[in-house]
Design a protein around this nucleic acid. Structure first.
Length: 220
DNA sequence: GGCCAGGACACCA
DNA sequence: TGGTGTCATGGC
């Protein structure tokens, strides 16, 4: 495996795309709702679902907690897998109520590792969703790995195609200073790049990081 | 009309 | 552990 200069990669992406300003949300609770609703779903569809919740006055922990499950599900239909995601939202709110008396600030003030363990204990919250919440809602340095991240590092030869989530996250944690702004911008840049380049195997023509991409068809 | 989005989980061998 | 099916909308 080649070792990719992850700091250098960050600067290349930043130079190519500019700051992305993630997460697109108004306040930590909206970040959390968005993190769950965007699972395996285009952000535009998740955003529609969030708008529906907002118009219904349910973008609030207590009010969403008291809303019927089928009411939530019908509002978030655009977000795909809406029945499952309605249950996931409820599961998060039950966790928040039982462990923190419904106080979101108390949850987000937890030390990073405790916060991560707590979030991962919630059914429907896996590592990517947990790290998104830790990073973008709590503002703590936990790197978010998604399918774009995995595909990019695999393309660059830094990981085996079957590398697991924690292994990939560990590469970034080891290479970068624990800066939430850096992590947040980096993840957003990887997503931006992934949407626009290298979707299918031999691509990379006019790719902004082609000069460090070992792929034969990279236009270097 | 098919394909795929900023995953997680259950089930199987 | 790793592979695979399920969930089930909307835009291109």
């Amino acid at each position: 495996m080649e070792r990719t200069d992850l700091i250098g990669l960050y600067h290349r992406l930043l130079a190519a795309y500019g700051p992305q300003g993630w997460w697109p949300a108004d306040g930590p609770f909206e970040v959390i709702v968005g993190a769950i609703l965007t699972q395996a779903t285009a952000w535009e569809n998740a955003a529609r679902a969030i708008d529906n919740l907002r118009r219904a006055g349910l973008l609030d922990p207590k009010r969403l907690m008291n809303a019927p499950l089928d009411r939530i599900a019908s509002l978030i239909r655009p977000a795909l897998y809406y029945n499952q995601k309605a249950k996931k939202l409820k599961a998060f709110l039950e966790f928040l109520a039982e462990r923190y008396g419904g106080d979101l600030d108390r949850l987000l003030d937890e030390p990073l590792s405790d916060l991560r363990d707590g979030l991962l204990s919630i059914p429907g919250v896996g590592p990517e969703t947990a790290d998104s919440i830790i990073l973008y809602a709590a503002g703590k340095p936990s790197f978010v790995v998604d399918s774009y991240t995995k595909r990019l590092l695999s393309r660059l030869g830094s990981i085996e195609p079957r590398a697991g989530y924690e292994e990939i996250r560990g590469l970034f944690l080891a290479a970068l200073p624990p800066d939430p702004d850096l992590y947040g911008e980096y993840h957003a840049l990887i997503v931006r790049h992934g949407k626009e380049h290298c979707r299918s195997a031999p691509l990379c023509a006019d790719c902004p990081i082609a000069s460090i991409c070992p792929h034969p068809k990279a236009g270097r």
